[in-house]
Nucleic acid binder design. Structure first.
Length: 456
DNA sequence: ATAGGGTTAG
């Protein structure tokens, strides 16, 4: 059916965009141009979304040219759609240009650019623009909170949320998913509990998005009971809800419970996806359920080969090598349907470390250094294998090599939350204000442990 | 009889 006017054509394009048929939307747009119908600002608003979804800069540029020819660049509606498109494509400069072309940019235009800044690692620019934009609504706050959270600025995300509440802006259901993820990243159980309470206060009931992040948040903070409780409260559980639960069990070393949750998930008629499988394999890994894990992998390989990704194969290598089944690991590695990346060899060398397999570790380290001469962790792992095996000469050789090549190791850290304050510690860290007391306590703990050993 | 910015699981 041909579209006679721009209104019905725009409606048809919009329907295609919303149902994810982006190629068809673009084709229909070209069609109506051919029919001599002149698109309006709403037409561009919807078709630019399809261009973003297709990640097609060429289509975007053609649309922009078309906008310019029609003299619509200064239109605020078209302008914000262009800003959004360029921001989503990672072309921040063009997004800024589109905002400058807009005669009277509004809260939507600014929010689109702020989201673009954050997505492209320009959080400073995002914050500056956010502070000076003429008007802010809940969506702009959500963009800042979500963007900061995704950029790893967890504390910033929480502070923004508090500030938003102080300014009297009511959070909505989109505020909480990212915020809870940030709090989980920070491991701040107490802060998360208050945010949970505030979500209930503002929203009454939580939707599946907030519910899912809550399940994951509690699990990642080690509070599995609360995680299960949050899971039970979700009305329309989807695969993400189950994944949050399964991964929570897996991360806390509860492999059997992860498997059991998976059985219940299947009973509801849901199929596993790549995250489910990853969580299950991870859970089996940490609980030593080698055969169970491998059989899950094989089943998925037969029934849903589409979900398999290199990281699943890497998990299987991990599974075998942790269990000291190096022959199985090597055979599996030799039969991969793709070239193994560096992570595969790292899995294997990790197992070598646990089981003191010096010879295998040496040959695996060669593979790793061939793929990435700057990889520090494999040097460290290799030196750990040597020191576990008592080959001190090899250890000092590796240490010298690390030093000569100027490699930096990424230091692991741990943290603890006390009264809503998260305290972070690195190895040998003395920066904490109560460092002396902490080390004194640590000494006395270590000493009493020794005493116990003596008694035994 | 059309519409724009923000959301979950590893």
């Amino acid at each position: 059916m041909p579209h006679r006017d721009v209104v019905s054509a725009t409606a048809a394009i919009g329907a295609l965009t919303r149902s994810g048929r982006h190629r068809d939307a673009v084709a229909l747009f070209s069609g109506i141009l051919g029919d001599g119908i002149v698109p309006n600002e709403f037409t561009f608003g919807t078709i630019l979304q399809s261009a973003s979804a297709l990640r097609d800069l060429r289509v975007g540029a053609q649309l922009h040219a078309c906008v310019a020819k029609l003299g619509l660049c200064s239109n605020v509606f078209v302008g914000s759609a262009l800003v959004d498109h360029y921001a989503k494509m990672g072309s921040v400069r063009e997004a800024q240009g589109a905002l400058q072309d807009t005669r009277e940019p509004n809260v939507v235009s600014y929010t689109a650019l702020i989201a673009g800044f954050l997505k492209n690692g320009m959080s400073g620019d995002a914050a500056r623009l956010f502070r000076c934009m003429p008007e802010r609504n809940v969506i702009s706050w959500n963009a800042m909170i979500g963007g900061s959270s995704k950029a790893g600025l967890n504390e910033e995300a929480v502070n923004l949320f508090l500030e938003m509440c102080r300014e009297g802006v009511r959070p909505n259901e989109s505020t909480f998913p990212c915020l809870l993820t940030s709090v989980a990243n920070a491991g701040a159980l107490g802060v998360g509990r208050s945010i949970h309470a505030s979500a209930i206060k503002f929203l009454g009931k939580l939707d599946v998005f907030a519910g899912n992040s809550l399940v994951s948040f509690y699990a990642r903070c080690g509070s599995l009971d609360d995680s299960v409780l949050a899971f039970k409260k979700i009305k329309n559980k989807n695969v993400v809800s189950w994944n949050a639960l399964i991964c929570g069990y897996a991360q806390n070393g509860r492999g059997e419970e992860a498997l059991d949750a998976f059985r219940r998930m299947k009973a509801t008629g849901l199929k596993l996806d790549r995250v489910t499988l990853l969580g299950l394999l991870f859970g089996c890994n940490h609980a030593g359920l080698v055969d169970e894990g491998y059989s899950l992998f094989r089943t998925a390989e037969m029934e849903q080969p589409g979900v398999l990704r290199p990281e699943h194969y890497a998990c299987v290598v991990d599974l075998f090598s942790r269990a000291k089944r190096f022959d199985d690991a090597k055979r599996f590695l030799e039969n991969l349907p793709f070239e193994p990346g560096i992570g595969f060899w790292k899995s294997l060398i990790g197992g070598c470390q646990i089981h003191w397999n010096r010879e295998l570790a040496k040959s695996v380290a060669k593979h790793i250094h061939a793929l990435d001469p700057k990889d520090t962790s494999s040097y460290i792992l290799l030196s750990n294998v040597y020191s576990a095996a008592g080959s001190w000469q090899d250890v000092s050789m590796i240490r010298r090599e690390i030093k000569e090549k100027g490699l930096k190791r990424i230091t692991g850290c741990s943290w603890i939350e006390v009264q809503n304050q998260v305290h972070v510690f690195f190895n040998g860290d003395r920066r904490h204000p109560k460092s002396d007391d902490i080390y004194m306590m640590l000494e006395s703990c270590l000493n009493s442990e020794e005493d116990e050993d003596c008694l035994v």
